[in-house]
C-alpha cells in the first residue's frame, strides 16, 4: 500500500492542478483574517479571537469551500487515469483493481487531511502576524492544538462525505458530473446550515459534529452519524464494485 501511495505522490510532480489546489486552500483562511481585521478596523471594541477565526474557517470550509475544492482535486486525480489512458498500463500490472482503488482512496484521504492541515497552519501563521498589529485573544499553543484536532476531525468527515462524488467520477470517467453535484450539495448546505434539520443532511451534519452545534437540532446526533456512515460505506462500496467491473474499452 505504501508503494501505491508513493506512486500516487510521484504522479503529482509538476502538476499545475495541485498548485491551483494549494492556492485554493489558502483562500478561506486569508479572507477570514481579512474579515476579522476589517471588522476590528471599523470597530475597535470587537475582539479578534483565535476561536472565532477557526470557527469561521471551519464553517466556510466544511459547508462551502472544501467540498468544492476537494471534489475538483479528487475527481482530477481519479479521472486523469481515464483521460491520460494510463489504466491500460495499470490493469496489466499484477496489482488488483481493489488494491489500486484503495491506494487511491487512501491518497485522497491524505490530500484531504493536507488541505485541512494547510488551512489550520495558515490561520495560525496569519493570526500570529496579525497579533503584531491588532490584539488577538486565545492565541495559545493549547487553543491552536485544540483546533488542530477539530480541523483534522473535519478532514475525517470530509473524507466520509466525499465518497459519492468519487463514485460519480468513476461512473462518468470525468470531473464535470461530480463538480456539478458538489456545487448542488454546497448550495443545499448554505440553505440548511441554520435550520434545525441540518443534521439529516450528511454534509451539514459533518459541520455540526466538528463544531459541536447539535443543540437545537431536531435530528439526534446518533442518527446524523449513522447517515454519514451509511453514505460513506455506500460510496466506498459503490466505487469498488464499479471499478472492479471497469474495462478498458
Amino acid at each position: 500500500m505504501l508503494r501505491l501511495l508513493q506512486c500516487e505522490a510521484m504522479k503529482l510532480r509538476r502538476s499545475r492542478f495541485l498548485l491551483i489546489g494549494i492556492a485554493g486552500t489558502l483562500i478561506v483562511p486569508f479572507f477570514i483574517i481579512i474579515k476579522a481585521v476589517t471588522r476590528y478596523g471599523s470597530d475597535s471594541r470587537t475582539v479578534v479571537s483565535l476561536f472565532t477565526l477557526y470557527d469561521d474557517a471551519l464553517m466556510f470550509l466544511m459547508l462551502l469551500f472544501a467540498p468544492l475544492v476537494l471534489t475538483i482535486l479528487h475527481a482530477w486525480i481519479v479521472s486523469r487515469e481515464y483521460t491520460d489512458g494510463t489504466l491500460k498500463n495499470i490493469f496489466v500490472i499484477p496489482v488488483s483493481k481493489t488494491a489500486f482503488l484503495c491506494g487511491k482512496l487512501l491518497f485522497l484521504a491524505c490530500v484531504t487531511f493536507a488541505f485541512m492541515l494547510i488551512s489550520w497552519l495558515e490561520i495560525l501563521v496569519l493570526a500570529i502576524l496579525c497579533s503584531f498589529f491588532v490584539p488577538v485573544t486565545d492565541l495559545t499553543i493549547l487553543s491552536a492544538f485544540f483546533f488542530l484536532v477539530r480541523m483534522l476531525s473535519g478532514g475525517l468527515f470530509l473524507c466520509a462525505t466525499q465518497t459519492p462524488f468519487l463514485y460519480l467520477t468513476i461512473r462518468t470517467r470525468g470531473f464535470v458530473a461530480p463538480l456539478i453535484a458538489a456545487a448542488a450539495v454546497c448550495f443545499v448546505n448554505v440553505v440548511l446550515s441554520g435550520s434545525p434539520i441540518a443534521g439529516v443532511y450528511p454534509w451539514s451534519a459533518s459541520w455540526l459534529f466538528v463544531c459541536r452545534r447539535f443543540h437545537g437540532q431536531s435530528c439526534p446526533a446518533g442518527l446524523s452519524a449513522a447517515l454519514i456512515l451509511i453514505m460513506c460505506f455506500w460510496g466506498i462500496a459503490a466505487c469498488l464494485l464499479r471499478f472492479r467491473r471497469e474495462e478498458v474499452g
Binding site: M10, K11, R13, R14, R80, D84, G85, T86, K88, N89
Partner: peptide
C-alpha cells in the same frame, strides 16, 4: 492503442 502516460512527467 495510443501510448498512455502522465503528461506532467
Amino acid at each position: 492503442e495510443a501510448p498512455g502516460f502522465y503528461p506532467n512527467l
